[in-house]
Computed example of a mutant assay.
Amino acid sequence: MSLWFLLSLSVLQGVTELFPVSSLGHTLLVPALFGVHMDKHAPQLLPFLVALHLGTAIALLWYFRERWVALIRGFFGSLAGHKSDDGHMMWALIIGTIPAGLVGLVLEKRIETLFHDLRIVAAALMINGVLLWFGDRLQRARMHRAPEKLTFRQAFLVGLAQIGALVPGFSRSGLTMIAGNAAGLTTEKAAEFSFLLGTPIIFAAGLLELPKLFHARDQLMTAVVGGVLTGIAAWLSVRFLMRYFEGRGRLASFGVYCVIAGAICLGWFMLHQQPV
């Protein structure tokens, strides 16, 4: 894999990780469409992917840094018996993180078998688009309803939605935004909760593999550059998305894109041999 391919992959990861269009699906489909074979056993790939996750997580932490400071203060205040909205939100995030974390550890290897058939990935991307369209309809049907503070049960259910993103083609941010809308949040608040909820998962994914990054010292500089590019792309993406949803942006727009992109990819891989 060339340096230019890896750097392009880092920008693609930074954008699609936060847009509700499935970063894993795009990482698998886009290179294949251009005939680029991704060797999963290539020595530079794993440390590079570790850096991309860390770059995305750091971008999210920086963008929501004031929010995280308030949440952490609220959390420790709750331990001392002081109730607050920030403390409640922090516990909701902790509870929401548990389902995907546990299921990911148990089923990660089995789900990896889905990566080999890009037709399944393309079909999943189309289904993701349909879900985004329905989620948008749900939110618009509740526009006149005051947003609710998530209960712990609702936070757990939103966290369950993250499990779907373990299948390539389904978007973690998209599924959790839909679940947040179903719980009564506005699209803006659902997006914020989705990004806050995803930060520990993304950060943990990078930290767990961090030793492998330092073991591949000859690939360290490429990984660092890729991580920085991903971080910049992720920061710009979350900044755009928060403003987009503050302006009553619609999930349906991303849904239409996913259906069209998934259909094109599905048709292509039905007619052409997949890279091996």
Score class of each variant (00 low, 15 high):
A51Q: 04
Q162C: 04
G164H: 11
L185F: 06
A100G: 05
G226V: 03
E188T: 05
R110I: 01
R250Q: 14
L213F: 12
R145Q: 15
S237M: 12
E209K: 15
A122L: 06
P147D: 01
G249L: 06
F245I: 08
L210E: 03
V228Y: 09
A51K: 09
L236F: 10
G35I: 14
E108R: 15
L251G: 05
V158Q: 05
R140L: 07
G129T: 02
K149G: 01
A122M: 05
G184I: 12
R172G: 07
V158G: 03
P200F: 14
R110W: 14
S2T: 14
R243T: 13
R250T: 07
A32F: 06
T222Y: 12
L196S: 03
H215A: 13
M1K: 01
V21Q: 04
P200M: 09
F134Q: 12
I111Y: 06
V256I: 15
R67D: 14
H272P: 00
H26L: 04
E112I: 03
L28D: 02
L107A: 15
K189L: 14
W4R: 07
K109W: 12
L185I: 00
M270P: 00
I111D: 06
A234L: 12
V21I: 14
Q273S: 15
H272D: 07
G247N: 14
A59N: 04
R145Y: 13
R248A: 12
E66C: 08
L207K: 12
L160H: 02
L28Q: 09
W235Q: 05
Q162L: 04
A80R: 15
F156R: 06
S171A: 09
A179T: 00
I127Q: 08
A205Y: 06
I202W: 09
H116G: 04
T230E: 01
V225K: 11
Y244M: 11
Q162H: 06
L236P: 03
A216T: 12
N181T: 15
R239S: 13
F34I: 11
Q13D: 01
L196Y: 07
L157M: 13
G247V: 11
A42I: 06
A57V: 10
I95S: 00
L29N: 03
F170C: 01
F64Y: 15
D85R: 14
L12M: 07
P211C: 01
V36N: 04
